[in-house]
Amino acid sequence: MLEIVLQNLDLVIFLALMVIGYTAGSIAEKRHYASIEQRERELLRLMLVNASGSYPDGRVKSAFLVSGSAVISVDYFKRFLAMLRNLFGGRVRAYESLLDRSRREAILRMKEEARAKGAVMIMNMRLETSTIGTSDTSKNGIGCVETLAYGTAVVLNPQ
């Protein structure tokens, strides 16, 4: 029995990594989604628009830039799934949740910063996504994305 394990050590390690990646990864993702949804509900009252508007004179107390960013990576299991997907093409669900999580997290952080500074709304929100440290040609790159959300927070004068 031990001999078989030792002979196929590569395979055993690979399977172990898959199992660790799958279990820990899905638990972490579920927790993250729960926290995102809860904070999104809390911050629902803070208006967020991606149009730039103007206010009548004397209404605005101050305006400033706020931003939030998050770097999220996929687990080992999902990376393997995505690699398989590459053979057949089609929708890569494993990466959809990755991007979704990092965008929502970045927006939430931006909103939290705006709320801490007393803003009532954020105008002209922009989102930017980039992969860091990896190029398209490298195989052993880290499968992670960075999302940056930024906008102009507005504090109003009391009427």
Binding site: L17, I20, G21, A24, G25, A28, E29, H32, S69, A70, V71, I72, S73, V74, D75, Y76, K78, L98, E105, I132, I142, G143, C144, E146, L148
Partner: peptide, 19 residues
Amino acid sequence: AGLKNLVGGELKGYTELLQ
């Protein structure tokens, strides 16, 4: 980050670095 990459999730070191 390499270790964290195994289980996925946020890479806090990178987030701070980029910020």
